[in-house]
Design a protein around this nucleic acid. Sequence first.
DNA 1: CTTTTCACAGTCGCGCGGATGGGA
DNA 2: TCCCATCCGCGCGACTGTGAAAAG
Length: 589
Amino acid sequence: MPGEEDSDAPMPSQRATDERKVSPVSGEDNLSNSSPYVGDGVGTNRYFITSSSQQMQDSSNLCSFLPYANQPGPVCAGTDGSRYPTSIHYGSVLPSTGFSSSVCAGRSQFGSGYQFGHGSGNIYPSYQGTGSGIASMGLPAGTGGRAQVYLCNRPLWLKFHRHQTEMIITKQGRRMFPFLSFNITGLNLSTHYNVFVEIVLADPNHWRFQGGKWVTCGKADNNMQGNKIYVHPESPNTGAHWMRQEISFGKLKLTNNKGANNSNAQMIVLQSLHKYQPRLHIVEVPEDGLDDVRREAKTQIFVFPESQFIAVTAYQNTDITQLKIDHNPFAKGFRDNYDSMYTAPEGDRLTPSPTESPRSHQLVPSGRYTMQPFLQDQFVNSLPHSRFYNSERAVPQANGILSPQVEDTGAPQRWLVTPVQQGSGGKLDLAGYEGDYSTSLLPYTLKSLPLQTSHSLSYYSDSAFTSVAAGWGSRGAYQKKMASALPWSPRPGHTDFPDSQMPDKDKPREEEAFAPGPAWVETMPFLKPLDSEPSVYSVVCKRRRVSHGGSSTENSPTIKCEDSRPLTFRKETSSSSKNIGYCPFYAAT
DNA sequence: CTTTTCACAGTCGCGCGGATGGGA
DNA sequence: TCCCATCCGCGCGACTGTGAAAAG
């Protein structure tokens, strides 16, 4: 394939249907209103992340993402028929239907106290699924605090989210990519927790890819049975353990095989062409028999809107395909041959060939490619910013799609979600992304956490060993091999963030980013894929894109946020038992 | 026509076994 | 000479997206 096509020949991915040639704005029809991602995609609108508990408790805000807010008092039901109230501020995520123990069958560590529910796992009220209730056992009051969770590879998620993330599901099970990887802080060091991911329907629609974009097509099938949760294999473990390093769910597999729920606990059963939303649950493990009433206070749920995806059996959007190829190490074999691909004269390129990278000169064959964000992000690290400046500015990212520099500038960010519901209504925030982007290229900025990169870790470069180890293999393997070569500590203290590291100027941006948004609509508007108009990205870069030397840099950051501190640290004093929150957690330098 | 399934090729990491070198 | 540790290469399996065929 490489070398077989001239520069104008369609790339393999483009040989698909015409529909697939168009960068979709999924759900555009349904989400066109109130989309914050207008114009450049980053949009002038910022979402507001508030530390105010009141706002977080504002059900109206919640409604934009968690319609359960309108439900009457959430109730968790145990298998024994008992029910325990959950004082979720933003609506229950626990339908009142009973729990099921089947999901956790075989997981001895979850044996006694509680079971995970499974079923439809809907997060919108219109569904009558069996729910995905999670009960937690109570723990002594005062143990632990409100956890904060960083979505470590959020920039990568954002990249995909801009095009409406698709996740392949197969009978054998397919790993997610990007995979879920979190940093957790705020746990009690000695308290034991179970950590698991639940994937629930994100909206009540059936989706189809039509006309180059995702559109709704009837109602979703809410009767889908099967496992909807994936318990981290290291569960249960102490808070110290969970906070020690990234918590990666790279081995989580998605399947459409309903029979897989019992046979393979690593699989989550989904339905093709349905939209799903992963949620992270942190549940304190009971160490003594506490009454049910206290259980609810020990479950924290985190939702990252950018991790929403549509399950498919075959990729529909070539942009997603290309992003997968470019960033997923396992798809390296599908990346283009640089040597044969890039033979254009140097003069044809707008972007100078970085001398630092032996391959870089091959990456930008012509001006058409110079602005490909993920090309930039591949080697922006190795180039003086000035070398990129012109090109960055020369081609506005009309759709605001990517600000890929975030993760590749060597300053990947951590994104924190507090367990409490943000008042944002779950709007996906790109401000940080933009900020990061600007970190390397623009005069203003939210600066991401500086992160050293090692070219020796080219494959995972900045995402590095932790995510790789955690995500693709054992968490220790890579660290064992690479730790000695890494100049930084993989184990930063992260719970303390000095205010001095948080420029005030950044706060408004973050807050804006999570400003209360429209109430829940059929398809959460705040999750609208960022651009409602054809992106430069998609228009210009319809040809198959190439990555540089296989750097899936942003897969997941390596380092914990030792230098970061929350801009908006929620001081949730509520007695809420379950808290669902999602908000990127910005750190400034 | 749409969606799903399957075989395929390519990349990678891991584990095994042999080769090598040092010390007892 | 034997034992042990380390290094290296090979094979296998896991994983990916592709593209054709099958299924609905």
